[in-house]
Computed example of a mutant assay.
Amino acid sequence: MSAPNKSYDPVEVEALKPEEIERMRDEAVAAIAAAPDLEALREVKAAHVGDRSPLALANREIGALPPHAKADAGKRVGQARGAVNKALAARQEELEAERDARVLVEEAVDVTLPYDRVPAGARHPLTTLADRIADVFVAMGYEVAEGPEVEAEWYNFDALNIAKDHPARTMQDTFFVNTGGGDGTRLGDGLGPGDSGDVVLRTHTSPVQIRSMLDREPPVYVICPGRVYRTDELDATHTPVFNQVELLAVDEGLTMADLKGTLDHMVRSLFGEGLKTRLRPNYFPFTEPSAEMDMECYVCHGASVGDPDNPCRTCSSEGWIELGGCGMVNPRVLTACGVDADKYSGFAFGFGIERLLMFRHNVEDMRDMVEGDVRFTRPFGMEI
């Protein structure tokens, strides 16, 4: 830029002529008014208010004027720039108001609509009940044990004293995964001691008891919940996949009295105080002596027996509800697991959790438990 020149007439500076400053101001104000949105307004601001805008460049020319001419030129440029900034602020406020109004319309939320149209899920009652049963025995000092659902035949049958010709080992009751590999080996080889045999989907959780005795030194106190498989048709009272819970205790001096006391405590914990239990003689290959365990109906307490006017749906007016099988562990089972049957004795019992859920909550159709309908699980809540 040139040095100050007192004899220089500012009127001759093109950018500082009054009509030129008015033109730049009017052009900037018109561009601001024509900006359709905030994005366009930002571009207009950079062009007419920024450091390279015409008025900003004109303002720089003032420094080259003689002192007596600077005031008048600075006043004209300052008034023009002030008018442009005022128009810019007004247009920005107007566009922001339009944007906010548009957002309120486009993103409106109707607060009168239901807020919970997507129903909440619920923990499946079978899981809740299995955990409650496990908690009862964990509080007594038992350990929760688990095992594979695809099991070697030795664990599922042989070690439990179930003979080769037992009906449970036929295709009628058992899912056999495979009876041999492509190289001529049997898939069960190496999964269990001795002749491991075929591979099956476990038909009960008793193989977990066998594994527990093989893995632990007595005393052994375990509870074994889990999923089991049998070749049943799916109907109101049967399912090919269901849940069992079994218990095993192995220690010195255990008797049927210990088994009865343990079952009594379980019934009181799950159904309330004052309920009676009874053991009816039965037969199971893996226990000797064996029994079926019944508990007094927790609804009618036996009052419906012989009273046709007051029938009980829970126990079918029989007064008792069958829970499951139990008994003292057969010495052959202890021996198969390397436990000294002369020194140690044990007891075991098992029952189906689905059946327990059915009569505990008056569920009439077992298919409701497996269809995944949240309308079935939601009434049971989110109990943990």
Rank of each mutant, 00 (worst) to 15 (best):
V105F: 03
V105T: 13
V105I: 13
V105S: 08
V105A: 13
V105N: 04
V105W: 02
E106L: 15
E106W: 09
E106A: 14
E106N: 10
E107P: 03
E107L: 14
E107I: 05
A108I: 06
A108P: 02
A108W: 14
A108M: 07
A108N: 09
V109T: 15
V109R: 12
V109D: 10
V109H: 10
V109K: 08
V109L: 14
D110N: 15
D110W: 15
D110K: 13
V111Q: 11
V111G: 05
V111C: 10
V111S: 12
T112R: 15
T112L: 14
T112V: 11
L113F: 14
P114W: 08
P114C: 10
P114A: 14
P114T: 08
P114N: 10
Y115H: 10
Y115V: 14
Y115N: 09
Y115Q: 13
D116F: 08
D116N: 14
D116M: 05
D116Q: 10
D116S: 11
R117L: 13
R117D: 09
R117I: 12
R117E: 12
R117A: 11
V118S: 10
P119A: 07
P119W: 04
P119V: 04
P119F: 04
P119K: 10
A120S: 13
A120C: 06
A120G: 14
A120V: 11
A120F: 03
A120I: 06
A120P: 09
G121L: 04
G121D: 05
G121S: 08
G121A: 05
G121T: 06
G121W: 03
A122M: 05
A122G: 07
A122L: 01
A122S: 12
A122I: 07
A122P: 03
A122F: 00
A122C: 02
R123V: 01
R123H: 05
R123G: 00
R123K: 10
R123Y: 00
H124N: 11
H124I: 06
H124S: 07
H124T: 07
H124W: 03
H124F: 05
P125N: 06
P125I: 15
P125F: 02
P125L: 11
P125A: 08
L126S: 05
L126A: 08
L126Y: 00
L126E: 01
L126T: 09
L126I: 09
T127I: 09
T127D: 01
T127G: 05
T127S: 07
T127Q: 04
T128Y: 01
T128L: 08
T128E: 09
T128K: 11
T128F: 01
T128Q: 15
L129Y: 02
L129H: 01
L129W: 02
L129V: 12
L129S: 02
L129N: 01
A130S: 14
A130M: 11
A130T: 12
A130P: 01
A130R: 01
D131F: 00
D131C: 03
D131W: 00
D131L: 07
D131H: 07
R132Q: 12
R132E: 10
R132T: 04
R132D: 06
R132G: 02
I133R: 01
I133G: 02
I133P: 00
I133N: 01
I133C: 07
I133W: 00
A134C: 15
A134M: 08
A134I: 04
D135C: 03
D135T: 10
D135Q: 12
D135V: 02
D135Y: 02
V136L: 06
